[in-house]
Simulated assay, not measured.
Amino acid sequence: MTSLTSSAHPLERAPRESFWTRIASDIAESISRGTYPPGERLPSEHALAELFGVNRHTIRKSLASLSSQGLVRVAQGSGTYVEEFAVDLMLAKRTRHHQSLSQAGLRGGLQVLTTRTQRAAVAQASALKVALRSKLLCLQVLGEAQGQPLHVSERYFPLPRFAGLDAIVGETGSITAAFATLGVADYTRQESRITAQMPDATIAAHLRQPVSRPILQVKSVNVDTAGLPIEFATTWFAGDRVKLTVTHDD
């Protein structure tokens, strides 16, 4: 593991209340120099405490400050990691997760977290143009790249047309592949509505970020070549790991 080589100035000479800010500054400088590259785990709190000659409470304050600046993320039970650079994802007429990642030079896919059947509420029935309380397939899906979570979503599909879609997505990691298997060779994005908001605890946990860090919410509707809605989704993107680019190309 790489090591922190700063701290040339003795911390004991600084006022005690400034120890954590000095340590945060030293770690931030090491990150900017590339000593700790994106995605790398920092030394443990115990190791950092020994390195800087302070207690673990001081180290926790330093790491919390770096987290609030978006430089690191703290994963409970795993450690503290340098944040990845933001991935530029396209929201276009034909929006595909795999294609967006390929264009960014990354690898990743979709992971089905939960699946259930439910009755369409007003918003879902309106978006999918189905009768109120019609049966829908609902998937909670995590989108990742290089092992990092980029977004989590709730996706609704009309039944019985898309029965079994959840199993195909689970096997392939691709909504597009599942659609193709079920007879939808092509589909397009009808609309995307983007808002910024704060995440709830569940969304923040899936994205491995604090609830104090904003996210981007996108509500979208996809339609088949006949113009029939086939998917209504609400997607929450990690605001510090994702840049959304909206294009108007055919």
Rank of each mutant, 00 (worst) to 15 (best):
Y187Q: 03
T181D: 12
S212W: 06
P210V: 15
A178M: 06
G183K: 00
D200E: 09
D200S: 03
T176F: 00
Q190D: 04
A204S: 09
Q190K: 14
A201H: 09
V184C: 02
G170Q: 02
V211A: 12
P214A: 14
P199N: 13
A196T: 15
L207G: 08
A178L: 07
R208W: 10
G173N: 07
D186N: 07
T202H: 10
G170L: 03
D186E: 12
P210W: 12
Q209N: 01
R213S: 15
T188H: 02
M198R: 03
R213H: 14
S192R: 05
L182N: 10
L207D: 11
A204K: 05
A205G: 10
R208K: 14
V211D: 02
D186K: 09
T176A: 04
T176I: 00
R208V: 08
L207I: 06
A196R: 12
L207Y: 04
R213C: 12
D186P: 00
L207A: 12
I194L: 14
A205T: 15
H206A: 05
S174C: 09
E171G: 10
R213Y: 15
A177K: 02
Q190R: 13
R213K: 13
A185Y: 08
T188A: 04
A185D: 04
A204Q: 12
R189F: 04
T172A: 08
L207W: 03
A178T: 02
Q197K: 12
A204Y: 01
P214D: 08
F179D: 01
Y187H: 06
I203N: 07
V211G: 05
T176V: 01
E171P: 09
T195L: 15
R189S: 07
L207K: 02
D186L: 08
T188C: 02
T181V: 09
P210D: 02
T195W: 12
T176W: 00
S174V: 11
S212T: 15
A180S: 08
R208T: 07
P210Y: 10
E171W: 11
R193A: 15
V184F: 02
P199K: 15
A196G: 13
T176S: 12
T176R: 08
Y187R: 03
F179G: 01
I175G: 02
G170H: 03
M198W: 01
R193D: 06
T176G: 01
Q209Y: 01
G170I: 05
P214H: 04
H206S: 08
T172L: 11
A201D: 14
D200L: 01
A178P: 01
Q209L: 09
S212Q: 08
M198L: 13
M198E: 00
T172C: 04
A185S: 13
V184I: 12
T188N: 00
D186A: 10
A205D: 10
R213N: 09
P199T: 13
